[in-house]
Nucleic acid binder design. Structure first.
Ligand SMILES: NC(=O)c1ccc[n+]([C@@H]2O[C@H](COP(=O)([O-])OP(=O)(O)OC[C@H]3O[C@@H](n4cnc5c(N)ncnc54)[C@H](O)[C@@H]3O)[C@@H](O)[C@H]2O)c1
Ligand SMILES: NC(=O)c1ccc[n+]([C@@H]2O[C@H](COP(=O)([O-])OP(=O)(O)OC[C@H]3O[C@@H](n4cnc5c(N)ncnc54)[C@H](O)[C@@H]3O)[C@@H](O)[C@H]2O)c1
Lengths: 209, 209
DNA sequence: AGGATGTTGTGCTTATTTTCCCAATATGAC
DNA sequence: GTCATATTGGGAAAATAAGCACAACATCCT
């Protein structure tokens, strides 16, 4: 099932290419070379060409890549030439920021519902939603066939909630809780933890105050 | 200065080890083997041992690692055996969530100020702060010697604001704006963009609705 | 005391990823 | 048409990262 032909590191760079190409498109650019794109992304041009060449021949020798075409190809490859509906579980500070973020809709994703287990939050409006009781989440996920979930609950609840999401049919989880989830191998998981990034950078900072 | 001995991928895993060890410590565990830690992190035990061995010999053969000791070592290595003060620029939805996040303080970081350029936000309270006019940011950064900044402004403003931060003395930026910053090589930058992760996962999802 | 079991640190091997390089092709100037 | 310049795609080499396997040591049980 998983295209083991294509290394995961390569897949991980495609969204960065796509993001930059969309940005260039809004600036009115029509064509770009791997060298120019590489400069914007601080990458090696050969790496970009090789990454793209795993999926086809999208460029023109001597010319470069036509931006709208390459955007369309990348959207197809990444399966974002459609809109995926997503759920958010956890209507705290982060869940609220996510629900109001317009970036999802213009990049292939759309929040369809938000859940919490706090009676004080259930039924309250957040953005264009009413927070739903998380006990209805599995049923909603099943009936709508939703496949993607954003997990924004406290760490202590993350594993249990993730398991409920998966057993309801969720197959991709973006986890904001600072923990590693243990889930079946056919479930995609990605993590966002600012502490990890800050500590990574702190390593390179000099100790002096 | 930068331990070019130590690959950046290794540095990137240390915060994950530290996070898990702290979690284990709260559960009362005192000792852990590389095999057990690897299982929790879904990594190879040899990789963990090799990563740690780049910085010293922290384990005991036949026994494993003493959790409090290893935590102390990792905190020292990552330079989080202290508290770094940080600024947040951008008091929008995300900036507000960040300011109220308690995770920073227990992991070596502390938000010291938050800035915006919107007159409607400047002067308003957010969490324990009053939003300050971003025009005072450079002066504040210089006078306090702050080195770390979180960038939570719209993409269109990110590069310019980042340059102001750097020229004021900021040396590490956690960027939430969906763009690649171009900054001097002595400035650390890390990015958080949920769209990138979602598109990465979407690649592996079957196209079927 | 000795054997069974468990664990580290690391030399070496294997796997993966990145980069180099160049034939092939495109465009524009004259 | 020819030449100068720009650029891709991909084979091959180089660089980097991951994993195996084992000597050395620790603990526990009898
Ligand atoms: N706020 C931030 O800036 C930030 C930054 C980094 C990471 N995080 C992480 O993101 C997660 C959410 O952060 P937050 O600041 O929004 O926290 P929060 O405490 O504001 O919100 C968490 C929400 O999850 C709900 N919840 C708890 N258990 C639940 C369950 N079993 N089912 C459904 N809902 C449940 C709570 O009622 C609450 O509304 C946490 O894991 C946090 O560590 C937050
Ligand atoms: N909200 C989310 O969940 C989310 C998710 C992913 C990424 N992001 C990204 O994070 C960034 C912030 O997101 P947000 O939702 O908080 O946006 P937001 O629009 O709510 O807030 C942005 C804030 O930045 C301020 N700002 C604009 N220009 C500024 C400048 N030059 N100096 C100082 N402040 C300035 C604005 O006044 C505003 O208060 C954006 O780049 C966004 O794309 C947000």
């Amino acid at each position: 099932m998983t295209d083991k032909q294509v290394p995961d590191v390569v897949v991980g760079r495609l969204p960065l290419y796509l993001r930059t190409l969309k940005q260039l498109q809004t600036e009115g650019r029509r064509v770009i070379s791997s060298a120019q794109l590489a400069k914007l992304l601080h990458l090696n041009p050969a790496q970009i060409r090789k990454d793209l060449s795993m999926f086809g021949e999208f460029g023109r020798q001597g010319v470069g890549y036509t931006i709208p075409d390459l955007i369309a190809q990348l959207e197809r490859i990444l399966h974002v030439d459609r809109t995926w509906e997503m759920i958010v579980v956890g209507a705290g500070a982060l869940g609220q920021a996510l629900v109001n973020y317009p970036g999802f809709e213009i990049n292939g994703f759309r929040i369809a519902a938000i859940y919490d287990n706090d009676p004080a939050k259930i039924g309250k409006p957040i953005g264009r939603f009413i927070v739903r009781d998380v006990q209805y989440m599995p049923e909603d996920v099943r009936s709508h066939g939703w496949r993607i979930g954003i997990l924004a609950v406290p760490e202590a609840a993350a594993q249990a909630v993730a398991e409920q999401m998966v057993s309801a049919g969720i197959r991709a989880i973006l986890c904001y809780a600072p923990t590693v989830l243990t889930l079946p191998g056919n479930v995609q998981v990605q993590y966002i933890d600012p502490i990890v990034h800050l500590q990574h950078m702190a390593f390179y900072l000099e100790e002096t105050d």
